[in-house]
Each structure stands twice: as C-alpha cells, then as structure tokens.
Nucleic acid binder design. Structure first.
Lengths: 247, 247
DNA sequence: CGGGTGTTTGAATAATGTCAAACCGAGTGG
DNA sequence: CCACTCGGTTTGACATTATTCAAACACCCG
C-alpha cells in the first residue's frame, strides 16, 4: 500500500450508505428518491494513484462524484509548468462544465487510490431537467467554487511566499475540518507533496521547502510524509493576515 | 465627462431593446416572455464613476445586470492590498451568490459611469423557481466564471510579469472582441489604469509601468489614457506562451 | 492657474527562481 | 537480507524578478 494511503478505497453498498451523499449534488434528492439516482448512475469505480479521471482536451463521457481519496485538478502551461487548480477531497463533484460536449480545460489526476461514483455525461442534462433540485444544488456548488477560486486568486496576488503558504495550508485544514470528523483535531492526512504546494501557489519547490522549514521552526505547521500537523492555528491566521507594509 | 468616458450611459426603452439581453440570464426568456421579466425587475439605474454597487460585508437587496460601462470586482486583503477579481463589461451579471442572504465577499465599484438593470434580491429565487430556463442559463454563466477564474489563476501562478501582463491584456481584448463590434478591430476603449492591471495581477504599479514600457517598445501593445492598442496579437500570443526555461 | 490623479524613472533592497548536488526512506529485485 | 533505484526532500551559491522609497512629471478638470 502506498505510503500516503491511510484509507483504502471503500465502495458504499448503495446511495443510502454513501459517505458523501450530503456534501454533493445527491443531497438534493429525498431519501425516497435515491433509487432514481441509483438507476441513473453508471457504476462505482476504483482507481489507483496517478490514474487520470480525464485529461485536458479530452471529451470524457462521464462525470464523477469523489467517494474517497484525493484528486488533483491541474493545467499545464505552454512553458511546461503545472498549475494546480484544486485539491479535491471526498464529496467533490468532478468533470462538470457548462457545455458538457466541449473538451475539458484541465486534467484530473488521482493523488491517492480513489473511489468514484460514475454518472453518464450524455444524459446528465436529462437528470438536471427531471430534477430541478439537482440543478439547484449544482448551481450552489459551482457558485461556491467561484468564491473559493476568488479566494485563491486573492491569496496568490496579495501575499508573499511565507504568508501565502500559511494561508493555503490553513484553508486546506479548515475546509476539511468542516465535513470531516478529524480523528486528530489538528492534523490531516493528505497526499500532499511540496511540489504540489508549489504548483498550487506558483512557487518553486526549492523555495517552498525553505518556507516550510521556516513555518516548522516557528512552530506553526509541519508537513511530513503525508501528514499535515497544524501546530498553531491562531499563529497561522495571524501570520497570513500580517501587513507586509504599513499603509 | 470623465476622460475615460467614451460612451455615455444609455438606458434601453425596454427589455426588447436591451443591448445585453443575449449575453446574460435574460437570454433564457423567449421574446414573448420578456414582459414577465420586465414586471419582475425593480428599475434601471445610472451610477457615476467610483460609485459602488455593493461592498464587502454588505447584504445588498439587489442584483444587477450591467447594461453599459465597466465595473471592477475586488477584495481588500488584511494588509490593505487590493486584489481585482474581475473587470466586468456590459452583459455581466453582478451580485449573485449561492446564499443570497449572506454578506458579500467582494466589492463592486464603477470604473466608469454605469447603467445597470436592477432585480430584487429577496424574490430572485422565486424567479429561478418559476423559470427553470433562467436557472439553467445562470448555471451556465457561473460555470464559465469558474473557468475564467482558473485561467486567471493559471496566469498568476505560472507566468512572470511580462508574460503575465501580455496574457492578461490579450484575454481582455479577446473577451471583448467576441461580443462587441469593436469599431476599430485592434483597439479597445476601457477605463484601465496601470494600478488596476497591477491589482489584478498581483504586481506593483511601478513594475507594471516598466513592463508596459517594455511591451510598448516591442510594439506588442500600448495603453494610453483609456485606450488599449493591440499592435501585434500574434506576437503577444507567442510571448505569453514562451517557455521561460527549456524543459 | 492650481490640485489631483495617474504615469514615469532611478537606485537600493528584498523575494524568488535557477542550477547543482547531496540526502533520505520506501519499495524492488537479486 | 542487501544493494539499488526512485520519488521526494534539503541545502548552498548565484541569477533574475519584483518591491520599496523617493521624486519628478504630465495631463485633465474645475
């Protein structure tokens, strides 16, 4: 088993027992409508680390609900650089875009072994049409995506490396801490490499490394082999809100 | 009249004559349904430069359709820095968010004199409920927002100043060139200051200035008093796709 | 004719990237 | 079980990119 693999992928018996039902589009269905969903969905599927759900330019014929594991959404620039757009946790709804027939504009790669629930892409609009509640929920999810995107943009544009990384890790932790019962209140198991942080924040691995050392020495966070230890949440928050200049 | 003000704000007689009808949520209504929209909307309104549609933290009671002029969406960081999230052109749908009652997470300021079409916020969900086509269109618009956000993120994370600005201006021009009949094929009137570019791209005004000089001397673009001259689109594209390193 | 906003330039300094090399632990195959 | 490889981390020296501070300038507007 991969060193980052703390939770082996597990498939729920049915939608009733689905661990992420409440956090994704499926929450729009009443308990007694779940059979409809079940009928609509293609299958469940398990994928190994490094597998791709889809790649830039492809026109996949599926849409995914992430059941367990982590998926990284990214783009490659003409220069060869990689930009990580999102680190998707269980509950994420992946592969949707406005014009479902268009080629994807980003790639989705498994950062751990992964379990997904698969929907057919071609007939997905039918589902949306038949169940307005699902479209309502989807709109909600995507509207939140916009906000998180804006947050990330603000982080990238407005903070230097140290504060940037601090804020990024803080958000990562908070976002998890909402839906999850973190076994340990202040640590998070996540297949996060320094390179990934760098690619998410537009900073070199080498520099990320120095920043992480700094954060560790300040006893704020430490990242070690797939475990993120949040040592001082308040301190992190203070750091990331710090003025770099006095206006 | 403000120096940047090339087009005085003008209010359409009714929805039938609305110049942006096709590019916003209203396009979801059939010609014969426009009366319903008309009945629902609160009013049209004209706002002067520097006026705000709404500010961070407020719970506005309206939603807007931008009819003419430019609106800048931005956030302020704890450090005092400003991050420009979007430069909204006519046709933009402003002020919507998943939970309409929540406080806004960004501010919207008029960069020119502006005309907006105003919808009531409180009853907006009713409109969505009664006309699924509008929700469908809104979902589409917002899904596109996500993509443009990802694009911006990629630009910020993956490019240095020169290429970053080049790409930004190129996108700005292309995005306009789609919906507009640009009188002059290769120039764009827009109340864009160097400071705005800087705040959008996370670069200091001073540095933006040097970059713009560079771009001007390479005869790629020039920005002068509210007019953006695209001198060499192909060259810009090449520059922004340039590898900084040879992988 | 001011006054104010936006632009421009220079010099010093700080932040970050690049290159090169060593290191470290986990899985692999002999 | 050990040598070996591989992905990921760590460090140093140096180059590049960007910020900061300070000041002058240009132009529109009242």
């Amino acid at each position: 088993m991969n060193k980052y693999q703390r939770e082996p992928p597990h498939l729920p018996k049915d939608c009733h027992h689905c661990p992420v039902r409440e956090s994704t589009v499926c929450s729009a269905m009443r308990e007694d409508q779940l059979a409809l969903l079940e009928a609509f969905k293609t299958c469940d599927r398990i994928l190994p680390v490094r597998a791709h759900l889809y790649r830039t330019g492809e026109r996949p014929h599926e849409i995914y609900n992430l059941l367990s594991g982590w998926v990284t959404l990214y783009r490659i620039l003409p220069s060869g650089k990689r930009q990580v757009l999102e680190i998707a946790a269980p509950g994420a709804f992946l592969g949707y875009q406005a014009r479902l027939g268009d080629p994807m504009l980003h790639s989705a790669e498994c950062s751990s072994d992964v379990a997904v629930c698969v929907f057919p892409r071609r007939t997905f609009p039918v589902l949306l049409e038949q169940h307005p509640a699902i479209r309502r929920k989807l709109l909600e999810l995507i509207a939140d995506d916009v906000v998180r995107g804006q947050d990330q943009l603000t982080n990238m544009g407005g903070r230097f490396g140290l504060e940037r990384v601090a804020y990024f890790l803080l958000q990562l932790h908070l976002h998890q801490h909402r839906r999850r019962d973190a076994s340990d209140e202040n640590s998070l198991n996540i297949p996060l490499t320094q390179e990934m942080i760098g690619d998410a924040l537009g900073i070199t691995v080498v520099h990320i490394n120095r920043i992480l050392r700094d954060l560790r020495e300040r006893r704020l966070v430490s990242l070690h082999r797939g475990t993120l230890h949040m040592l001082d949440l308040e301190g992190l928050r203070r750091l990331s809100e710090e003025s770099q200049r006095v206006p």
